[in-house]
């Protein structure tokens, strides 16, 4: 896929040149941790599935949400290339059309990993912050990274497909605004299933944000997993993998068939 490497490096140069986007991308999740974490500091630990405090409980959710947001916006980014002109150049160059889209998907995944590292560090230095009471193994970090990356691939692909098919900026931002709250609150990202209304719970089960949040949460709280925990984490990652793979294939097919100018 010629074009993928040069276009990905273009995205990374732009990111590096606009540190503001990195900072603003971090402010919101940091607020989640700091504000939610302290506001709900007295959250009854009985609901926290064994986490020593609320920040340790929600960090998996915050990392997942950060991944979703960054991924959604970078998927949608293609509309700016269309509006500002570079897309026209790429479309008349001898590169695969899918490489235009995948450069955004891959570069956003890299950016998300940097954001995740910074957020974990921030959560650890906060008072009454993130604590790995049962240790954090190489396997645990592999689970964390896999979950975050798969979630990023899912949402950047999904929103790339939308941005390929929908050329009106207003429509796309409408969709973004419509989905972001339900994605967070109809999931296990911030709140334990135990305190949720039944109907929300039954939808939240199928939210990929829940799968990722729960997988990360399980490894952070428990360190070494029991057999049944391992099975659950495996299942969540499997769901994420299947969804990510299907969306990536769909993105490939749709972008090759024609990006509308």
């Amino acid at each position: 896929m010629s074009g993928l490497i040069p276009l990905t490096s273009r995205e990374l140069i732009r990111w590096y040149r606009n540190p503001v986007s990195l900072i603003t991308g971090l402010i919101q999740p940091f607020f989640w941790i700091a504000l939610f974490g302290s506001a709900l500091g007295r959250f009854p630990t009985i609901f926290l599935q064994g986490a020593p405090n609320y920040i340790t409980y929600i960090i998996g959710g915050v990392l997942s949400i950060t991944s979703v947001f960054t991924a959604m916006f970078s998927g949608v980014n293609i509309i700016f290339d269309r509006r500002l002109g570079p897309l026209g150049r790429y479309l008349s160059s001898p590169i695969r059309r899918s490489s235009i889209v995948f450069s955004k998907i891959f570069s956003s995944t890299l950016r998300i990993l940097v954001q995740v590292a910074i957020l974990i560090f921030a959560a650890m230095i906060l008072p009454n912050g993130l604590r790995f009471e049962n240790g954090f193994s190489l396997f645990d970090s592999a689970v964390l990274i896999t979950a975050v990356v798969l979630l990023a691939l899912i949402f950047s692909s999904l929103f790339s497909i939308i941005a390929i098919r929908v050329t009106r900026m207003e429509t796309i931002f409408g969709i973004l605004n419509l989905v972001n709250l339900p994605l967070i609150f109809v999931s296990y990202a911030m709140f334990p299933p135990g305190i949720m209304a039944g109907w929300i719970n039954s939808i939240a089960k199928y939210n990929p944000v829940s799968w990722s949040s729960e997988a990360i949460r399980t490894v952070i709280i428990n360190g070494t997993l029991t057999g049944s925990q391992l099975a659950n984490v495996g299942l969540w990652l499997l769901y994420l993998t299947i969804l990510a793979a299907s969306l990536i294939i769909l993105t490939y097919v749709i972008s090759e068939r024609g990006i509308r100018d």
Binding site: R10, P86, R89
Partner: peptide, 9 residues
């Protein structure tokens, strides 16, 4: 093309 296509950044 008629439109500008270079990346400003």
């Amino acid at each position: 093309p008629q439109d500008l296509t270079t990346d400003e950044d």
